[in-house]
Every structure is written in structure tokens, then in C-alpha cells.
């Protein structure tokens, strides 16, 4: 199984009308979609509006999603179109947003750096530092399991082969590693929005 299977499972439930499943997809992807939208739209309030609109459109079109591409790729197209439509509508009014051509010409890393507020950039740096510390403090067997999963993208079966332990143990180690990291992150960043 891959991480995209998670999306497929949640999409199938959402297609049957389970809003809780779609809510998990929103929570998972809203940051990345907001980052995409911010390539086109500079005003933070409008970024939220367009991001929200993109997810609502995606839910309404969910019946048409057949799983031929990854859910995120499909969602990405919807969000990009929503942002472009917003720009087209915006061009009829005075404003300082990027043109479609400007946004298309941006490289993502540059756009992210330019679009991010200093606070967001600082928070990213702080999170990275806290994470490094939390990972360093993990017992070796927990850190190995988590890294093989997060960085190498291995399945639990493959991790079990690599580490020479049962799949259930892998699952438990990854869970415990995440718990430890999560606790550390919450302690260190409890004052930051999005980390409470």
C-alpha cells in the first residue's frame, strides 16, 4: 500500500457522502493548495477564499474522479483553475494580483519564498529545528522505522524486511515515533497557529 491509497480510501468514502472523510483530505492538503493559490493571488484573505472554493468545487466534482490520476494531481488542477478564474474575474476590477502569465512563470520554490510571510518562514525554520531535536532524541529503532517510512516511502512490509521484525512491530514503532515527535512539537510550538 502507498500513501495515495489513503487518499483513495478517503475519496471512496467521500463519494458515498461521508463528509468526515473529505474533511481529512482538506486537512491534509489545504496547506499545499493554499501555497499553490498564493502563486496567483497575493492577498491572504483571498488566498483563503479561493482555497476554500477549490475544495468545495472538488467535492462537488468528486463523482467524476475515477482514480486515473492521484487525487492531489486532480485537486491541483481544480485549484489552479479556480485561482486563474479568480484572476480573470479580478482583472475586471482594480487590484495588485499577479497576471496568469506572471503566475505561470513562477518557479514554486521562489513563489513560496516570496509568498510566505516572515512569520511563516520563521515558523518553518523553528519547526525544522524542533523536529531535528525530536528525531535525535528518538530511540534508534523508532527513528529508523519512521525515517524509512517518511523519507524512503517504504511500505510496512518492506520496512519489516529491512529491520527484520514483524509488520505489527513496524506499525507500532512508527506510531510511537510519531507520538514522541508530536508531543515535542506541541510542547515547543504550542503558541503557534496550526500547531495546537
Amino acid at each position: 500500500m502507498k500513501a495515495s491509497d489513503t487518499d483513495q480510501q478517503l475519496v471512496q468514502r467521500a463519494q458515498r457522502g461521508d463528509l468526515r472523510a473529505f474533511d481529512l483530505l482538506v486537512l491534509k492538503y489545504q496547506g499545499r493548495i493554499a501555497a499553490l493559490v498564493s502563486r496567483y493571488v497575493f492577498d491572504p484573505g483571498e488566498v483563503e477564499d479561493v482555497t476554500q472554493e477549490a475544495f468545495i468545487k472538488a467535492y462537488r466534482a468528486l463523482d467524476k474522479f475515477r482514480g486515473d490520476s492521484a487525487f492531489y494531481t486532480w485537486l491541483y488542477r481544480i485549484a489552479a483553475n479556480a485561482a486563474k478564474n479568480h484572476l480573470v474575474a479580478r482583472s475586471r476590477r482594480p487590484g495588485a494580483d499577479a497576471t496568469v502569465e506572471d503566475a505561470e512563470g513562477y518557479d514554486e520554490a521562489g513563489a513560496l519564498a516570496e509568498g510566505s510571510s516572515p512569520e511563516a518562514l520563521a515558523m518553518g525554520d523553528e519547526l525544522a529545528a524542533v523536529l531535528q531535536q525530536a528525531l535525535d532524541n528518538l530511540p534508534d529503532e523508532l527513528r529508523a522505522a519512521l525515517m524509512l517510512r517518511e523519507l524512503e516511502g517504504l511500505s510496512y512490509d518492506d520496512i519489516a524486511d529491512v529491520l527484520g521484525c514483524p509488520v505489527g512491530t513496524v506499525r507500532s514503532r512508527i506510531f510511537r515515533a510519531r507520538e514522541a515527535v508530536d508531543q515535542r512539537v506541541r510542547e515547543q510550538m504550542s503558541g503557534e497557529s496550526g500547531f495546537r
Binding site: 519547526l127 517518511e150 512539537v185
Partner: peptide, 21 residues
């Protein structure tokens, strides 16, 4: 939170983690 942590471990960074729609 864990998805953000996962993204951070992979070296990804969001424009603004406070966005919640």
C-alpha cells in the same frame, strides 16, 4: 499536525501553516 510534520521531515514547506479552510 502530523501531516505538517511529515511534510517538514521531507523538506517541504507550506506558504502559511495558519491557513485553515
Amino acid at each position: 499536525r502530523q501531516h505538517r510534520v511529515s511534510a517538514a521531515i521531507k523538506g517541504q514547506r507550506f506558504a502559511d501553516p495558519s491557513v485553515d479552510v
